[in-house]
Design a protein around this nucleic acid. Sequence first.
DNA 1: TTGAAAGCGCTAACAC
DNA 2: GTGTTAGCGCTTTCAA
Lengths: 349, 349
Amino acid sequence: MPDPSPGARPTLEAVAARAGVSRATVSRVVNGGAGVRRPLVERVRRAVEELGYIPNHAARTLVTRRNGAVAVIIAEPEFRVFSDPFFEQQVRGISRELTAHDSQLVLLWVEGAGDYERIARYLGGGHVDGALAFSVHDDDELPSIVRRVQVPTVFGGRPGWPGATGELAVPYVDADNRGGAREAVRYLLAQGRGRIAHIAGPRDQTSATDRLAGYRDVLLDADPDLVAQGDFTEESGARAMAELLERRPGLDAVFAGNDLMASGALRVLRERGLRVPEDVALVGFDDMASVAEATDPPLTTVRQDIEGMGRLMVRLLMRALHQDGGPGAPDAAPGSVITPTELVRRASA
Amino acid sequence: MPDPSPGARPTLEAVAARAGVSRATVSRVVNGGAGVRRPLVERVRRAVEELGYIPNHAARTLVTRRNGAVAVIIAEPEFRVFSDPFFEQQVRGISRELTAHDSQLVLLWVEGAGDYERIARYLGGGHVDGALAFSVHDDDELPSIVRRVQVPTVFGGRPGWPGATGELAVPYVDADNRGGAREAVRYLLAQGRGRIAHIAGPRDQTSATDRLAGYRDVLLDADPDLVAQGDFTEESGARAMAELLERRPGLDAVFAGNDLMASGALRVLRERGLRVPEDVALVGFDDMASVAEATDPPLTTVRQDIEGMGRLMVRLLMRALHQDGGPGAPDAAPGSVITPTELVRRASA
DNA sequence: TTGAAAGCGCTAACAC
DNA sequence: GTGTTAGCGCTTTCAA
């Protein structure tokens, strides 16, 4: 039998013909070779090799209903996407873990409100086995979309939208923001600091509000004037610090909502001639190497394992996918997980 | 007829039943509705709506052999990926243009040498209609992979591997690095500068070697000691500048291979008390806003339309895909394109 | 203009 | 163990 029209890719059929076996046998070999006798396996392998056979993805997906691909959804206005080191680390973790599970990362980039329809079609069309999304702002429409198209999804960060703990509950991975904040404040207390201020992040991001809550957990009757509002940028940290100093010149410690704001605060502190940590102790959050280790003095901060959180998101999703159709509750949501934080002592407090 | 097991997604069949038409008609409507009478179209549309029907991607791909997805391949060691603003802009352009063509961006992240096998399988498996890759170093194995699995691919940046103009030629999109460099040097000449130095980028990246070539085109008998080697980082620009000053203290202009190196050079120039542009005129390349506009003085530089290059890569690929199977030569490679550059005058020269 | 029917390439029962 | 066969959900001739 002559080769089928050259240029056309060989199919299972062609391999079977060449190896002198049935399609089923080739399929078995291609999928691991369990239950096929050695010599046959080798014969088939050789045919695959010679023909340069590569399984057709669409055909396989059509019957298995699995894709070997997972979407990572990025909402552009929220993220400085590429430039945000936090995000880069998380995606790196996701990418690595996905590779370990033999799955492909499909990046979906949402650029505007109109893109959500496209995303919904894509997710619903069965291109991917599941999705990974990030919960940034409270009014995101992603949760309702993934619910509508019924694609298993794990969120990064604790969702803050209304009903996130009830009807619209979704599995997520988040750091122990509240616990980490408590540890930071307690540490400052233990250093003998009595007037501890806080620079809070955006009010509509749970990572920020949880840290504020942790601060308040420890300082039950904290002076409201010791809390200033920032937005996670360096600039906002500087502004907040100036405000704080104006309102409470006697403060002796600052717990900033993240390292970037801590770095801005540090700048202002030094401009005013205040020594860190002698006059004012300073603690950040994140332990972003490019920031926390670069300041002078380097920051004492609360570390979270960002890459690990990315990997965890994937594991959670995979668990949900694999149990699917299994004996347990078929649509049991994968539980959320909170990863521990760790106080890293450097020179600023 | 009762709904089929709830939870199962509706198929074309279900929509057809509901609308009281054949599958073929539903298919036509879903794909634009050409050749179907109005009332029927509406009836089908309604059924689609009511059932929440979303076409199954795998089934469709199996017959059409088209995917609506394009891979963007990123080789990790080469790129500082996420942190590189150049890259971010290019991917943004790609993403936008892909959306306009109703195609999905699938990001393939190559982390190590072992990943190439996985990439080859993915590309060959028909997950995507084509690929976009970046030509960074001369010894990349990507070109041979895309050739082996026969997936239409457009490169970003002129490939420099051996045979890139012959056997292994691939379509690419690149800026007119050589022409831009010539313009920069001529401009410096026109300003009355007589001893113009160059800080070159990595020897194994064509963007760097092309710029060096442009410099030499204009300064045919340039003093070899007026060329210093850098690697596109700011730090290397500073080092190269120091070297240059050591060797040729009398230089009166510098054309740096990119803005980052120009910025490093500027720092050294100022440390040595040299005024820019009075004592030494300085020109960069790229017009990276975050760099060129932030220096003091702001950089005169050669601008390239990075986002536009990304969009162009997509258009080239789409052209190749659409002509495929058409009347013309079936596997005519899409031609490469060189995009123009433009000298942007600021204060440094 | 609409419908019937034949696959696309593969996996998974089910026979042998 | 290995082969036979019936689809997976869709598009696309080809008839009507």
